[in-house]
């Protein structure tokens, strides 16, 4: 899709409306994968879109506009993950509670499928790698550069994730056959 970049940079309401309408869904789904639940993902997306809107004059055209916004939304996901972790820690300390199960308990776990849940249970970095690779279709080299990692590290994460997800796929396949 070729956005009207000049109109987006001007802040034209129609251009932004069209942009969100065109890309909002995939950005939201990516955010759900990265943060682990729908409400937080909506939060991260809205903050990301707002940040992009406000920063639009700083877009230098070195990437597609959509890719630039994607990167900003990923940053917002990281922020909310950090805030969420801080809040959980504070709550645990104040309530002297045992560490709660991560992510699997979110409302999204029941809503989405087995692969989603497997990815949601990964650590943040591995989850970003898997999401960018499988959902956003980024290449290993691009992911490595974006995350500031060596390609070998990305490949290692992917190999581990692939084995895990492959076994889940097989189980899904067996379930379908029954």
């Amino acid at each position: 899709m070729g956005e009207d970049i000049s109109r987006l940079l001007e802040g034209a309401p129609e251009a932004w409306g069209d942009f969100v309408q065109c890309h909002g869904e995939s950005l939201l789904r990516m955010a759900v994968l990265l943060v682990g639940d729908r409400d937080t993902a909506q939060d991260a997306l809205q903050e990301g879109l707002l940040a992009a809107y406000r920063a639009r004059q700083r877009f230098r055209g070195e990437a597609r506009f959509h890719t630039w916004v994607t990167a900003i939304v990923i940053n917002e996901c990281r922020k909310v993950n950090r805030l969420s972790a801080q809040r959980e820690r504070a709550e645990r300390i104040s309530a002297s509670m045992p560490e709660p199960a991560r992510r699997e308990d979110t409302s999204a776990s029941a809503e989405f499928g087995s692969l989603y849940n497997a990815i949601a249970s990964l650590g943040e970095q591995e989850r970003e790698i898997v999401t960018l690779y499988y959902f956003n279709d980024w290449k290993v080299s691009a992911i490595a550069t974006f995350l500031g990692l060596k390609e070998g590290t990305v490949k290692s994460h992917l190999a581990r994730a692939r084995n895990r997800l492959r076994s889940i796929l097989r189980r899904i396949g067996e379930g379908d056959d029954e």
Partner: peptide, 10 residues
């Protein structure tokens, strides 16, 4: 946001 320097990744 806005300080990103990266080229087309996809």
């Amino acid at each position: 946001a806005g300080h990103t320097k990266f080229t087309e990744l996809t």
